[in-house]
Design a protein around this nucleic acid. Structure first.
Lengths: 148, 148
DNA sequence: GCTGGCCTTGACGTCGACGTCAAGGTCTAG
DNA sequence: CTAGACCTTGACGTCGACGTCAAGGCCAGC
């Protein structure tokens, strides 16, 4: 098949395929008129690349998987180099997740503090929800003390 | 103080400060010879920007905080616009964390499966740990069946 | 006066994974 | 024969937050 069909079948663009070829991944045979020619194996290679890309792998990280498939192995992750990429990615993800969770917690703290301070600066304004029902305001109103 | 001193005190570079000024954050007064002149308030603005940057906020996201401080409020997050940025960031972080955790789980699954398959292709090689002690190999060797 | 250290503006480079446009070749159906 | 749908290479644009270099102004100390 030609580049347009491969791109469509893989849900990507011709530009992307030429880019992969330029980067040394996914080399293409040529027909007599210079057109790129691909087969089903190339589609598999491409699927491997795209799957890893969807997981957030950089293009270079997909290279061991592609080379593993090109070497005739049953799967892209049948080679040790691919497993190393998996492990490195896991470690990277763990670091990243940990960092983001700590940031999330800190931002949440800042938001809560700022909201409390904002409410403290607008006395009487923050809780007009009890205007109709004189409900148990002692249990509902947050009754906060500003942080010194 | 001049740009070099401010940069050093904030732990950043002069290039960064000029960049902020070009983007409309952190405007600078000028001395007669054209040099930028900053004061302690500018240092506080800069600290606000850098803190948020460290949290992964984009530069544009720091603008409400800076403007809030410039308007004379006690803190950068004393204004509603800043709180909205906090909330948007929290939502963004939640999405991102969730996505990364799902990816992490999926990668872990793939790694485990690939490791098992690799071990299955190298029979007798994977567990040479029992060479000295003829321990309960039935309970230790993973004994896996390759996925069809 | 001169060296060295600060400052100025302007402009191009970086990184990743392509998007987009240009100019032109190739093949097929009508 | 020609329109149109493909294909080719080449090259520049994108985005964010700066880094880096160039050419030149300003000022303090010797």
């Amino acid at each position: 098949m030609r580049i347009g069909e491969l791109a469509e079948r893989a849900g990507t663009t011709t530009r992307t395929l030429r880019y992969y070829e330029a980067r040394g991944l996914l080399p293409a045979r040529r027909t007599v008129n210079g057109y790129r020619e691909y087969d089903e194996d190339d589609l598999r290679l491409l699927h491997q690349i795209r799957t890893l890309q969807d997981f957030g792998f950089e293009l270079e990280d997909t290279r061991p998987f592609v080379e593993c498939l090109q070497a005739g192995h049953p799967a892209g992750d049948s080679c040790p180099a691919s497993l190393d990429v998996y492990r490195a990615k896991l470690a990277e993800l763990d670091l990243c997740i940990d960092r983001m969770m700590r940031v999330r917690a800190e931002v949440a703290v800042q938001l809560a503090r700022a909201e409390v301070e904002a409410a403290a600066r607008t006395p009487g304004g923050p809780d007009p929800k009890c205007e109709l029902a004189p409900c148990d305001s002692a249990a509902l109103s947050p009754r906060k003390d500003p942080v010194p």
